[in-house]
Simulated scan of single mutants.
Amino acid sequence: MADEFAPIRSTGIGSWPGTDLIEALKISFDEAPELPFLPELPARGVGSQIIGRGIAVLSGLGADLQPAGWRLTDAPGRDQLRARATLRDDRDQLEEVAQDYRGPFKIAIAGPWTMAASVERPRGDRLLADHGARRELTQSLAEGIAELVDDLQRRLPALDLVVQLDEPALPAVLAGDIATASGFSKHRKVDVPEVSDSLQSVAEAVSAALRPAEQSTLPRVWLHSCARGVPVQLVHKAGFGGVLVDLDQLGTADWDAIGQAMTDGLWLGAGALSTSPATGPAAGRQWSADRVGERVLRAVRTLGLEPDVAGRMIITPACGLARFDRASAVGALRAVRKAADIVTDQLAD
């Protein structure tokens, strides 16, 4: 049975404490060697946070930072230009650190529906309120991510890039649970076909930009959401090879959808290390790799997965680690890595 699946891998989600990218990159390569990732450092400011990074990637759309948040403008504003400069600097530093690395490497960018739920139109209210603006945003984001992929592959041709779309707002968009700018009402639900088409167009643009992998069999395009109610089947049908979820947020229907999708070839990023304030490490206490491993094994048993199907799994923290201190964040990566070894050993018996 041990030959029926590859060893379970581990990685981080993306966000990381501190402001030193070189240090964070070295930790990523050391502590998540099976799938290192480009850390996001929101402590550096709004341009390095999830929406700011998405703003930096947009192609052909200008934006600026207003008191209420990011808003589209006729031309790039100072804050968007600063976010783009930070992203260029990050690529320079990645190029320096990763010169001798060959293998899979993950980057993360906000997806179109989280961007639409967070960014305002020039005349106010969220892009989510305007069908044409939603379509334009999707096209801009797809082109921008493809351009980013092209640049990274030119700089570091030995990387097998993996692209993760961060969509924490996706379930709320589908449920009609995004508040309007006034806060007195909510935006209407977006039709499922439009959501699917938007995600599919981004997935296709990114997939077309990615060179064939040389060192890895991992899916190249993933979607991450640590919210409740992730539409797993929709995501899979839209062309994503993997979905990363918070195991704490899954209900019975979610488990059924994941089990069916994994049987059909989907990979699962199992967010088994809880990052909620109630379960984070207290001073002097470490994350429990045994507990994380047991949660994943329980998920395997719940889904009734055969070992070869269970091998299509990566163990991660449930969400990003930016709110923790450096030692705790490093401990989290070590815990999920050790848990991956534990699960691999159990499945091999």
Rank of each mutant, 00 (worst) to 15 (best):
G229P: 01
S182W: 04
P17T: 08
Q99G: 10
V232T: 09
A6C: 09
G176K: 11
D256A: 15
E34C: 10
A289G: 05
L161E: 05
I342L: 10
F324K: 03
D256P: 00
G144K: 02
W16S: 02
I107S: 05
R228N: 10
P193K: 11
E31G: 01
A270K: 01
D125V: 09
D20Y: 01
L247C: 13
R123S: 14
H224S: 10
V309Q: 02
G239V: 14
A63H: 01
A318I: 04
T302G: 09
G280K: 05
E34G: 07
P17W: 09
L81M: 07
L234C: 05
V300R: 00
P277D: 12
A310H: 00
S328V: 13
I50P: 00
G103Y: 01
G265N: 06
V202H: 02
E96S: 14
Q249P: 02
D191Y: 10
R228G: 02
P7C: 13
E40C: 08
T279F: 10
R71D: 05
L250G: 03
T252C: 07
G331W: 00
R334V: 08
T302E: 11
S225G: 15
G239L: 15
E96C: 12
Q215P: 03
V245Y: 02
G14M: 05
T275W: 08
V330W: 00
G251E: 12
W287P: 00
A209V: 09
L58H: 03
T73A: 14
P122N: 12
L25Y: 01
V195P: 01
P317G: 10
Q286M: 13
A203D: 07
G280Y: 05
E23N: 12
M313W: 06
A179C: 03
L266M: 12
Q215T: 10
P157I: 13
G103M: 07
R228A: 15
A213Y: 05
H224N: 08
R126I: 07
A205I: 09
E194W: 09
A227Y: 03
